[in-house]
Amino acid sequence: MKDYDSYLSDTAKQIQPSGIRKFFDLAASMKGVISLGVGEPDFVTPWSAREATIASLEAGFTSYTANPGLLELRQEIASYLNSRFSVTYNPEDQIIVTVGASQALDLAFRALLNEGDEVLIVEPAFVSYSALVTIAGGTPVPLATSAENGFKVTAAQIEEAITDKTKAILLCSPNNPTGTYLNKDDLREISEVIINHDLITISDEIYAELTYDERYTSIASIDGMYERTILINGFSKGFAMTGWRLGFVTAPTEFAKVMLKIHQYTTMCAPHMLQHGAIEALRDLDNVEIMKNSYRRRRNYFVQSLNNIGLDCHTPGGSFYVFPSVRKTGLTSEQFAEQLLKQEKVAVVPGSAFGESGEGFVRCSYATSLEQLQEAIKRMARFIASLEK
């Protein structure tokens, strides 16, 4: 047989492994590590959702569902989006239940992109965005942001980056990894450029429930944006349901129909019994508020503590990540992460994993107990002191 490499897809070969998983796997092989690396809520899924899933199994709900998901769940999603974020979607033909928000993103890109179409991606950005655009045949175009303005992309930046090949822009607010939140005023300015250039927006709103200082605004609620927005959301972060792999995508009917065709052939449907748990999760939002209030307290403590030990860090508006600068240490982000892990057993993710503009920073998740965060700060302070000797 020939060399296996000759049989593999050129597109698949050029995609780099996740920089997040590299450090997570390394940390998992060590004892006594405090992991601030992976975006995993430390809360267990609320009992009401688990109980509903157990009951659905006992009742024998183990078959396929309709391709877009249980109608009852889609109705709950529609009600949730309307009451929480003032956007209205028809559960009959504008909502698809997916296997996590990641599959929803994949569906959006595959439905939209032809070979060579450009997608603007605000960086630092979640590691899968560029890869998914590439897999779908598109060309990812990074828009670098900086700490000086809290990692916010501006309308002028977007305007400058648009070419005759630009088809879409991907926005994630609150952002992973920076936690940056785009408020209503930010979105209005950005929307003017998007509308003027007739672009489509893929809006990753997976952290919408974890917005701490302002009421969340979906870009789909901005005048003129509903008809040109594909909205991605799910249950992983705000509902502490990462392992359930349940997300959803909502869009104008014309987009949703095409995404549904791809979903039919690649996935069929999300797991039946888990959809019953998601229905109950959407009916029990008190648990979401409890988790959010806890994350807010941790954020405030962690940001202040990082600044106190000499790692400059802006206060993120949402998510459960902070993105402190490590430039004062003289180390690259990868060197800092590797040495901190080996010397003090604290796992963080180098900012370079999220694009070139992430170099000089590290991503730390505060989705862990306050006691763990306090111990992590002690270890990080000791590590920084050791570099100064």
Rank of each mutant, 00 (worst) to 15 (best):
D93V: 01
D106T: 09
G100L: 12
S83T: 10
V87W: 05
L107F: 04
E123Q: 14
V87K: 10
P91G: 03
N90Y: 02
D117P: 03
L112P: 08
A108P: 06
A108M: 00
P124F: 07
I96K: 01
S86Y: 09
E92R: 09
P91R: 09
T98K: 05
Y89S: 01
D117K: 12
I121W: 07
F109N: 01
E115Q: 09
L112E: 05
A125W: 12
E115M: 01
Q94M: 10
A125H: 10
S86W: 05
F109P: 00
L81T: 07
S83F: 04
L107H: 03
Q94Y: 11
N82M: 09
S83C: 07
V87G: 12
I121C: 07
V99W: 15
E115N: 01
N82G: 11
T98Y: 01
R110L: 01
L113P: 00
S83P: 02
G116I: 08
G100C: 11
L113N: 06
A101Q: 15
G100M: 13
S86F: 06
E118T: 11
D117H: 14
N90R: 04
A125G: 07
A108E: 00
S83A: 12
V122E: 05
V119Q: 09
L107M: 05
V119A: 07
F85Y: 15
L112M: 10
L81I: 04
Y80F: 14
V122M: 06
L120F: 10
L120D: 08
N114Q: 13
R84P: 03
V87T: 12
D117Q: 12
L112A: 04
F85H: 14
S83Y: 02
G100F: 13
Y80S: 03
A108I: 00
S102W: 10
I95K: 04
S86V: 03
S102H: 15
I121F: 08
V122A: 07
A111Q: 04
Y80M: 09
E92F: 02
A125Y: 11
D117W: 12
A125I: 05
D93M: 05
D93S: 11
G116S: 05
D93T: 08
A108H: 00
E123L: 08
V119T: 09
L120T: 11
N90I: 00
Q103A: 13
E123R: 11
L112I: 07
L107S: 02
Y80V: 06
Q103C: 09
E123C: 10
L107G: 03
A101H: 15
V122H: 03
N90G: 04
I121D: 10
N82H: 12
Y80A: 02
A101R: 15
S86H: 13
F109I: 01
G100T: 11
L112F: 11
R110G: 08
E123N: 12
V119H: 10
T88K: 15
E118F: 08
Q94C: 08
Q94G: 05
S102K: 15
A125T: 08
L113A: 07
V97A: 07
E118L: 11
T88M: 13
F85W: 14
A111H: 01
V119P: 04
Q94N: 11
P91T: 07
G116A: 06
F85C: 08
G116C: 03
F109H: 08
R84F: 10
N82K: 13
D106L: 03
Q94I: 04
N114S: 13
S102D: 12
E115K: 11
A108N: 00
L113K: 04
D106M: 05
L120Y: 12
V99T: 14
E115P: 00
N90Q: 02
L107I: 05
